[in-house]
Design a protein around this nucleic acid. Structure first.
Length: 473
RNA sequence: GCGCUUGUAGCUCAAUUGGAUAGAGCGCAGCCCUGCGGAGGCUGAGGCUGUGGGUUCGAGUCCCGCCAAGCGCGCCA
């Protein structure tokens, strides 16, 4: 048990002890009563319990504080208690107990800080999940770093984590991608073809098209267009996925599972999902399409699941995917990390999950806000269609993995951020990454020097409770 | 128009989820140092927490209105 819980326990016991002695009236203890004061001198921990209880118990906070004080069992972790206006109880750790923690930490080595909080529950973190229609850019990279860090933390907290990438290898966007790749292939062989309007303009497709023509020659150019598009698509898709994989690998992000959207239609999950929705009477036929009645869950409008032409929408496969997550894979908790531009999708996904009979509280969606790149004072916008994007590869070439991960994690996912390339590459204390790396180098140096001499048994003494206290020289 | 997110020192961000005098780094001003693997050290100025109300012992944090920025509101994904 960590020290926070130990002390919270002590206070909780003191509370019920005072009640059983008739000093305090009956009632439950509120949540979040133990905190760490912002300033040293107010103790290592503080409780606001008297303030929180005052109104309900119709007593003065200071009176409650004094009653609790007499019931708190100090030993062995605590040294003393102080009561402060208007009703805080400040708790000070025992110095010998603090010293013993050094040994405990050393004994735990790299395992220090891990916990069994998650009780080996199976959870999934799904992130990145970029359409394999182009390379990963800076916005995706932010989600990638968040997901990978979150997964590590969950593992340390005792969860069994599956990190999954959802490959959108079905649907209109993929068809468009195949079409564009076909055009680039034909262009590389000298045929006059044009990228369709709203198509993918990026340079990477030119290269990919050239590579395919180099390896396979002209053999697809003689086929009927539809056949050629499909054949080239079959070659292009795995190449695209491989390139995404290797980009992420450079970023230190590795997935346990790559889940294919297409597979949902091959293994029956999609069919089953639609059956459940139908049986639960959430489906409507209207204007030749099949709709999910989202409005019954308070949504603004209903959503199409199957188009007039009979093909399922992205929303339909996402419903099936989440059916898979909860009903087939049986994860106890699922976290999706999405770009903020998917924000409107959250509530209707939750609705469809509820309609499938799944507790929507099991799904947590983290939205990561937009990233802009600043270089030499200028802002660079990321836009995929126009091909004007800063790719992950370019970012890593410029600033390296450490700075990349550090900066993405240094801001809340909720806030938009500017990634300052000049700052991230600066070798001065302006750059927090440089500062951290410098500290690490110095510490390693000290450790190396220590090993040169014969290590002596450590005699631990607390010189000062406050490391910044002035030295009396 | 409706919905989501954000708004804190000149800049980039914190603030233990409603607690005590809103804190750090950079920048700025002043003083000091000059062979540890120096990113020099110390001190200081700098704030009506976008804005107007409300809730209560207490609000940067919760509620309502307004202002500003970004995103979303497809039978695209």
């Amino acid at each position: 048990m960590n020290i926070h819980s130990v002390i919270a326990n002590k206070i909780s016991l003191a509370f019920s002890d005072a009640q059983s002695r008739g000093l305090l009236p009956e009632g439950n203890i509120p949540d979040g009563f133990l905190e760490r004061p912002q300033k040293t001198g107010r103790g290592d921990f503080a409780t606001t319990l008297p303030l929180k209880l005052a109104r309900f118990m119709k007593m003065k906070p200071l009176d409650i504080a004094h009653i609790l004080e007499t019931s708190i069992d100090l030993k062995p972790e605590l040294e003393r208690i102080e009561i402060a206006e208007p009703g805080f109880i400040n708790l000070f750790l025992n110095q010998n107990w603090l010293l013993s923690q050094v040994e405990m930490i050393l004994n735990h080595g790299n395992k220090f800080g891990e916990s069994t909080f998650g009780q080996n529950k199976r959870v999934q973190v799904e992130y990145v999940s970029v359409n394999p229609t182009g390379p990963i850019h800076v916005g995706h990279a932010r989600g990638a770093v968040l997901g990978s860090a979150l997964s590590s933390i969950l593992r340390c907290a005792g969860y069994l984590v599956t990190e999954e990438y959802y490959i959108n290898d079905a649907g209109n966007q993929m068809d468009l991608f195949y079409q564009c790749l076909y055009v680039r292939y034909m262009q590389s062989l000298g045929f006059a073809k044009e990228i369709p309007e709203n198509g993918y303009q990026g340079e990477y497709l030119v290269t990919l098209g050239e590579n395919i023509s180099k390896e396979y020659g002209e053999k697809f150019s003689n086929l009927p267009e539809e056949e050629a598009v499909s054949a080239i698509g079959n070659i292009g898709l795995p190449l695209m996925i491989e390139s995404i994989k290797s980009d992420l690998d450079r970023l230190g992000v590795e997935f346990d599972s790559w889940f294919s959207e297409k597979s949902l239609f091959e293994n029956g999950h999609y069919k089953k999902t639609m059956e459940i929705l139908k049986d639960n009477n959430y489906l409507l036929e209207r204007e030749g399409a099949i709709w999910f009645e989202s409005t019954r869950f308070g949504e603004d409008k209903d959503n199409v699941l199957v188009r007039t032409n009979g093909t399922p929408t992205y929303f339909a496969s996402d419903a099936a995917y989440h059916y898979y997550k909860f009903k087939i894979a049986e994860y106890e908790k699922v976290t999706n990390i999405w770009g903020a531009d998917h924000q409107g999708h959250v509530s209707r996904l939750k609705s469809v999950i509820a309609a499938l009979g799944i507790d929507e509280a099991k799904l947590n969606v983290i939205l990561s806000q937009m990233v802009t790149i600043r270089q030499s004072g200028d802002l660079v916008r990321a836009s995929k269609r126009s091909g004007q994007l800063v790719t992950l590869t370019e970012l890593l070439d410029d600033v390296g993995v450490d700075a990349c991960r550090f900066f993405f994690l240094s801001r809340s996912p909720d806030s938009q951020m500017e990634f300052d390339l000049d700052l991230a590459t600066k070798q001065s204390s302006d750059n927090p990454v440089y500062y951290v790396q410098y500290c690490h180098a110095r510490i390693q140096s000290i450790l190396r020097l220590t090993k040169l001499n014969n290590p002596v048994p450590i005699d631990l003494v607390i010189i000062s409770r406050d490391p910044w206290v002035e030295n009396p020289t």
